[in-house]
Amino acid sequence: MRALVATLFALFAALAVWSFAVAPAHGWAMPENVATLGTSVDELFGKIQWIVGAFFVLTVGGLAWIVWRSAQGGGGARSALASHTKLEVLWTVVPGAILVWLALVQIAPWEAMKFSSSIPRSADGKPKPPLCEVWASQFDWRALYPGADGRCGTGDDLHSPYELVVPVNEPVVLALHSRDVIHSFFVPSFRLKQDILPGRETLVWFECTKPGTYDLLCAELCGWGHYKMAGSVRALPRAEYEQFLERKTRELSSNGMEDTK
């Protein structure tokens, strides 16, 4: 039994290490990061992975080893030590120092992601106005680009259902809105997630660094259709982005009426 239990714990430790080590090769890791702010997330993740890995192997591996080495049945114990002050100090101070360090290094990237003082600035030094409004409702996404008047919520808004189109390689600010319950704007490839509360505007910002189409998911339970609240984000070079807006404007005028689709 002793050998079985020790093997069980050792195998568990090996399996856990393996599951993280091979994750990228199997698509079990975070998808490729394509946003500037995501870099710090991946860096922090990697650092924590080393800390977690070291303590995990030390403690679970240690447990397996202790069980393996333990005396059994009638044999006496080698140690009846009940406490040891130096050891207690050691395993309080060392992890404590690592944790304090970890608590501090997360502050700057968090500030860059979520503090309103970090909203990207335009050339005039003022916070960049939102590129568009993103409206979430049960169970779809809709991007609303301002028309010729430069404002949303007027008759000439350009609608893009299910697909958000953004220019690549420049900071983008979005204004998130909900029509009904709480939804959450989640783009894994940007490392970006933000809940959207009904009745208020929530700003998010990012800079996508690679043209492409990325999944947009709803990450907050919003009702029976939560699972199918899928959308996408298409990142285009500036010129193609302008073409997209032009096409949308043409669609709007050719209909001769407000595009409600």
Binding site: F12, M30, V41, I48, V52, V60, W110, M113, F186, A219
Partner: peptide, 24 residues
Amino acid sequence: ALFITGGLSGLWLACTPVDVYMHD
């Protein structure tokens, strides 16, 4: 063994920028 695992994975979640991704 299992509590160690659950406790350690909490370190990623306690890290706010990483939790933005992991949350939910």
